[in-house]
Simulated assay, not measured.
Amino acid sequence: MNKRLLARAGALLGAAVLSAGLVVAVGAPAQAASLGDVTLSQTSGTVTDTPIFASATTAKCPTGYGENANLRIGRPGGPYSNLAVALGGGGYDQNPITINPNRSFSTAIGGAPAAGEWWIVVECYSLTEGRHVDEFRTSIQVTGNTWRVPVAEDTTTSLAVSPASPVSQGTEVTLTATVSPATATGTVEFRRGASSLGTATVSGGKAVLATTALPVGTFSLSAAFTPADATAYKPSASGATSFQVTAAAGAITAPVEIIADVAPGAFSLVVANPTASLTGGTVGGTAAGKLPAVTVTDLRGTNVGWDLTGQLEDFTLGANTIANSNLTWTPSAAKTSGSGAVTAGAAADLGDTRTLCSANSGASAGVFTCGADLNLTIPDNVPPGEYSATLTLTLA
């Protein structure tokens, strides 16, 4: 049975509002998503260490799925192999979980692991419903006989320019970027103001670009490092170096002022898919689904920040209700483009107005996507049927 989540978006007094109907339906389990991180007692080791690490900790399991918990390892998406004896006895949906593995990586999978990405997961189980469709997970990278949690190392980039300023137009100028640590590989983009002069590959901690194309004037030169492996190193940029180029001897110059009239761009909220459902719902159980991806565009030019919040009505079926606080969401957010940054809201029930995502003042310009995993706890004393509620998202 196909159930709909209908959405409409508009702009009112500088705020965008999205109203959506949420309908509980019974259907096939959703594809596994992340319930959160698995925090390991160490961030690296060898594949033969026994145990692989001392402990793994997660937040509590989803409500109703606290009968058992299991620590496993495998390629992204599975299949997974056990790293520990499964926890039993219940109560794992009441408090954070700690599991102590009892074997090595290679023992768990029956041989040496291949290089690349692997997942360490914690699964949660219900006595009646079995394994929860989603899982806690943390990615690790295997290289040779070692594994590590991919925590990127900080880098620094500095710029040297030769010859020293000022120079005559047409003089060859050499820009040398030094990247530390010297083991970092990648490319450096050299810039004149916001314009790119070109890129060069980092070798032995240095990247070099020579140019004779600098125009007459005084401007800023800078260098920006992009790592080849973003899981190993973080990007960095040099400070600005002021540089002057003078006209060649005998040249005649004339200034021309160029004026650009820049109008403000969009401030909007758009839902990507108007159809969604919560599936797997049974009396006394849970229903799960995803909020359709929402795109926030802030090209106003003010960079004043924004908040996208949600307010949910109670679910109703005739005179029967399920309280709005029974629905919880775990927000997610990502930047599509622009200079700003977006932050996902905290996981919470929707018994009150909650933040889906936000951008701070001074860093809110760009295009962003926000979404959420949804989980509805269904009381054991409500009649079965189709319950619906309206969720209103407000961007301001």
Score class of each variant (00 low, 15 high):
residue 87 L to A: 14
residue 87 L to G: 10
residue 87 L to D: 06
residue 87 L to K: 14
residue 87 L to Y: 10
residue 87 L to V: 10
residue 88 G to H: 02
residue 88 G to A: 07
residue 88 G to M: 01
residue 88 G to N: 09
residue 88 G to E: 03
residue 88 G to R: 05
residue 88 G to C: 03
residue 89 G to A: 01
residue 89 G to E: 00
residue 89 G to K: 01
residue 89 G to S: 01
residue 89 G to F: 04
residue 90 G to T: 05
residue 90 G to C: 06
residue 90 G to M: 06
residue 90 G to A: 06
residue 91 G to Y: 06
residue 91 G to C: 06
residue 91 G to V: 12
residue 91 G to L: 07
residue 92 Y to T: 14
residue 92 Y to D: 07
residue 93 D to L: 09
residue 93 D to Q: 10
residue 94 Q to W: 02
residue 94 Q to R: 11
residue 95 N to R: 14
residue 95 N to T: 15
residue 95 N to M: 14
residue 95 N to A: 15
residue 95 N to K: 14
residue 95 N to Y: 13
residue 95 N to G: 09
residue 96 P to I: 14
residue 97 I to P: 04
residue 97 I to C: 08
residue 97 I to T: 10
residue 97 I to G: 04
residue 97 I to W: 08
residue 98 T to G: 08
residue 98 T to A: 14
residue 98 T to M: 12
residue 98 T to C: 11
residue 98 T to V: 15
residue 98 T to L: 13
residue 99 I to L: 14
residue 99 I to P: 09
residue 99 I to H: 12
residue 100 N to A: 15
residue 100 N to Y: 15
residue 101 P to S: 08
residue 101 P to F: 05
residue 101 P to I: 03
residue 101 P to E: 04
residue 102 N to Q: 07
residue 102 N to V: 07
residue 102 N to E: 06
residue 103 R to G: 09
residue 103 R to C: 11
residue 103 R to Y: 11
residue 103 R to V: 11
residue 103 R to P: 08
residue 103 R to D: 11
residue 104 S to I: 10
residue 104 S to Y: 10
residue 104 S to K: 13
residue 104 S to F: 12
residue 104 S to M: 13
residue 105 F to T: 02
residue 105 F to Y: 11
residue 105 F to G: 02
residue 106 S to K: 10
residue 106 S to N: 11
residue 106 S to T: 09
residue 106 S to Q: 13
residue 106 S to I: 03
residue 106 S to W: 04
residue 106 S to E: 13
residue 106 S to G: 01
residue 107 T to H: 03
residue 107 T to V: 08
residue 108 A to V: 07
residue 108 A to N: 05
residue 108 A to T: 06
residue 108 A to M: 07
residue 108 A to Q: 05
residue 108 A to Y: 07
residue 108 A to I: 07
residue 108 A to C: 07
residue 109 I to M: 01
residue 109 I to D: 00
residue 109 I to S: 00
residue 109 I to Y: 00
residue 109 I to N: 00
residue 109 I to C: 00
residue 109 I to E: 00
residue 110 G to S: 02
residue 110 G to N: 01
residue 110 G to I: 00
residue 110 G to A: 02
residue 110 G to C: 02
residue 110 G to P: 01
residue 111 G to A: 09
residue 111 G to I: 07
residue 111 G to P: 03
residue 112 A to R: 06
residue 112 A to P: 00
residue 112 A to E: 05
residue 112 A to Y: 02
residue 112 A to L: 06
residue 112 A to S: 08
residue 113 P to N: 04
residue 113 P to A: 05
residue 113 P to W: 08
residue 114 A to R: 06
residue 114 A to I: 00
residue 114 A to M: 03
residue 115 A to S: 08
residue 115 A to F: 01
residue 115 A to K: 04
residue 115 A to M: 02
residue 116 G to S: 13
residue 116 G to C: 12
residue 116 G to A: 11
residue 116 G to L: 13
residue 117 E to I: 11
residue 117 E to Y: 09
residue 117 E to V: 11
residue 117 E to C: 01
residue 118 W to P: 00
